[in-house]
Structures are given as C-alpha cells and as structure tokens.
Simulated assay, not measured.
Amino acid sequence: MTTILKNNKLTAAIDHHGAELISLKSSNTREYMWNGNPEFWGKHSPILFPIVGTLKNNSFHYENNDYHLTRHGFARDMDFEVIEANDERAIFSLSRTNDTLKNYPFDFQLQIIYTLKETNLSISYLVKNFGKRAMPFSIGAHPAFALPLKFKDYEIEFEQEEPLEYHLLKNDLISQETQKLNLQNKKVKLNYDLFALDALIFKTIQSKKLTILENKKPLLKVEYEDFPSLGIWTKISAPFICIEPWFGYSDVLESTGDLLLKEGIQILEPNATFQSIFTIKIL
C-alpha cells in the first residue's frame, strides 16, 4: 500500500511498509529519490528505530536480560498504520507488539508525519513512551537521493566552514580512528574514494543544513536543526548519496552492551513524548 501526497510543485509517495518515502517528484517529473535498485541497495529512505546502526554482537543488555536487534532496528521492516491522510499530510503509526517486545521490551508508539508544503517535504518523528520505565532509544533518517549524472558532477555544501572529523567503522562498529573531511568554500566534491571505508559518521556536527549541488547548481537541501549526529554514505559506483540525520549511531568497539549506557542513546521518561523534524527542500 502507498499513500500519495501532492501539490502543484511536488508529489511524494510513502510506502506503508516501513513508512518509507519511496518517491519525491517535481512537477517536471524529475525524481529526487533513489529507485531502490537492489544491485546497489534495495531501500529508498528507511526509518531507523529503535537503534541506529549496528549493536555489538547484534545484542544489548537490559535488566539482566539479553535482547537481539539487527542493524538499524525493526521499524523499517514493519507495516505502519495510516491514522490520518489528506493531499499534503499523512501520519503513520507503529506500536509495540508481542513480537517487538521479544527484542525491545518497551511500550512505545512511533509516529512518522509527512507534510508537503510548496517545494518542501518535512518529516516529523514522534516517539511516545507508554511504559512505566525510562525507555532508551535511537532514531534516524536514511534518505537516498538520486544522482543521475556522473558522481563527480555533484558536491555537498555544508552550512558552515568547520573542522569535520568523522569516525571510521570497523566490523560495522565505530572505532576511535578518525579522519578529517576537508572543505573548500564549505563544499566537498563527491568521489567514491571518500566512501572506500564505508560511511562518514559525524558524532557531532555544527552544520544543520546540507545542500547537494549538481554541476555547481543547488539541487536540494536537507535541514535537520535538532539532530546531533549525521551520516553520509553511498555504495561504491552507486548513483545516489544518503544524507542521514541521527539521534544515535552504531555501538563503539568498546561497548559493554548496556543499552542505558550506550553512546548517543536517548532516554525517554514514562508518559513522555520525543519529537524531531527534518526537511527536504527542492531548490
């Protein structure tokens, strides 16, 4: 099942499976989202919840019990309920089930709210804790944007000229080894060598707006004001780039497995609601 949002400038399609944005087209029919070709990567824009990235041994400890969670959590692989939909707004909801409790012992509700306005698509995350205990979680975005020209024809412009240090992955976990991303006039030219060691993972980042440029011309912008962390990723030779605002990231190599002590984890008190928003702006 798919829900379509549409105005006179943009059309967005959201798959009920994973509440995943699978298409974002302008009125001239240009497609901005990656098509999900499994030859490279079979997703478009998955929701990462209740973890972002990979847990050490794909497991965590909580109250003397061990639980198993695969990479990026389960939300992206579950069917969401549509609780509201009109031409320019749709709300998707996922709540705990007997199956989720086996791997994540918390009484949660996750809502994804898509809102279309002019040439902007905003995606809001609402996480509610209906349980009696504090609930640790992470949440993140993973949109893949189509790059139909040669990869080298694209640049990413950061909001600020800043020292950008990213952590390297080792066996899908975050190591202490870092590298610097050098900007020129706040921009980095895309090349696949940047991703030879997997994603660029910024635990903290000052820039809260990133612009993709195509042959020096602004194509689209991702704004993520309240997200502390960011990933940038592609597969070698793939014609897409992912710009991923996150609350949380993969376990570090030294992780003890205690979910409450996990680096980057969010803690939501009973009966509390977490909310964040990021926006894709077509330029």
Rank of each mutant, 00 (worst) to 15 (best):
M1V: 10
T2F: 08
I4F: 08
L21P: 02
K25A: 13
Y32G: 02
G36W: 14
P50A: 05
I51S: 06
V52P: 02
T54K: 12
L55H: 03
N57Q: 12
Y67P: 03
H68I: 13
F74E: 01
E84C: 09
D87N: 15
R89N: 11
I91K: 11
F92L: 02
L94C: 07
R96A: 11
T100H: 10
T100Q: 10
P105R: 07
T119C: 06
N120G: 04
N120K: 12
V127K: 05
R133V: 04
P136E: 00
H142Q: 10
P143M: 11
P148V: 11
K150N: 11
I156H: 01
P163L: 15
E165F: 14
N171K: 15
Q176V: 12
N182D: 09
K187S: 06
K187M: 05
Y192W: 14
I201D: 02
I205F: 05
Q206P: 02
L219T: 06
V222H: 05
V222A: 02
E225I: 14
D226W: 02
L230F: 07
G231C: 01
T234E: 07
A238G: 07
P239I: 08
I243N: 01
F247E: 00
F247V: 02
I265Q: 00
I267E: 03
E269A: 08
P270N: 11
Q275I: 09
Q275T: 06
Q275Y: 12
T279A: 10
